[in-house]
Simulated scan of single mutants.
Amino acid sequence: MTTETVRENPPSTIIAAFFGFLVSTVSAIAGGLLILNSRDEIAAALRRANPAMAQDQLDRLTLLGQVIPVAIAAVVALVYLWLAFKLKAGRNWARVTLTVFTLLQAASLLTTEPSWAGYVSCGVAVVATVLSYLSPSSRFIAAVRRAG
């Protein structure tokens, strides 16, 4: 295989893994956006933690409690998407990094109270990770490395 052939023709397992990571990212973003509908719950939790808090301070902290997780989710989503494209290009380091991220995502399901989107995102990421290690995927990544 020439370098161009290798890079232009990833196997179906890599393509499926790529789209799996895209779906996982979109569902994670959906889950992250659910927090925007949680204003009342966040405010109530903050009020319980500090009943004497002034209303303007409560409002600012509630907004931060919504914005910070969404901003973090956006950054993580961008990194995840970048890694998915690198996987599609046959980069083993991207496959390994996505595997680590998927393991961390699965571990977070055990330590948090995830939404349905969190479960969907993790499940799809696990399937995509498995696909990225199947024989055709590994052969493709090895061929890209040799061509490279």
Rank of each mutant, 00 (worst) to 15 (best):
M1R: 04
T2K: 07
T3C: 00
T3W: 04
T3S: 07
T5N: 12
T5D: 14
T5M: 10
T5G: 06
V6W: 09
V6P: 04
E8Q: 14
N9G: 03
N9D: 08
P11R: 13
S12N: 04
S12H: 00
T13G: 05
I14T: 11
I15M: 06
A17K: 06
F18Y: 12
F21R: 13
F21E: 02
L22F: 13
T25M: 09
V26N: 09
S27P: 06
S27H: 06
I29C: 06
A30Y: 08
G32Q: 08
L33E: 06
L33C: 07
R39E: 15
I42P: 04
A43D: 12
A43Y: 11
A43C: 11
A45N: 14
A45Q: 12
L46Q: 14
R48E: 15
A49M: 14
P51S: 07
A52N: 09
M53W: 09
Q55M: 07
Q55A: 13
Q57I: 09
Q57E: 14
L58P: 02
L61A: 10
L61I: 08
L63K: 12
G65L: 03
G65V: 13
I68K: 09
P69F: 01
V70D: 14
I72V: 15
A73E: 10
A73V: 13
A74C: 03
A77T: 07
A77W: 11
L78N: 04
V79H: 01
Y80F: 12
W82E: 03
W82P: 00
L83P: 00
L83W: 04
A84I: 03
K86I: 08
L87N: 01
L87I: 09
L87P: 00
L87Q: 01
L87C: 06
K88Q: 13
A89T: 03
R91L: 11
R91Q: 15
N92L: 07
A94Q: 03
V96P: 02
L98E: 01
L98C: 04
T99Y: 01
T99W: 02
T99Q: 09
V100R: 07
F101Q: 03
L104Y: 08
A106C: 08
A107G: 14
S108R: 08
S108H: 10
L109M: 05
L109Y: 11
T111L: 11
T111P: 01
T112G: 04
T112Q: 08
E113P: 00
P114L: 08
S115H: 06
W116Q: 01
A117Y: 02
A117L: 12
Y119N: 14
V120R: 00
V120D: 00
V120T: 09
S121V: 01
C122M: 10
G123A: 10
V124I: 09
V127H: 06
A128W: 01
A128I: 05
V130D: 10
V130S: 06
S132G: 05
S137A: 13
S138W: 00
R139S: 10
I141R: 07
I141V: 15
I141Y: 04
A142T: 15
A142D: 15
A143N: 07
A143C: 04
V144A: 14
V144E: 09
R146P: 02
R146G: 04
A147K: 08
G148D: 06
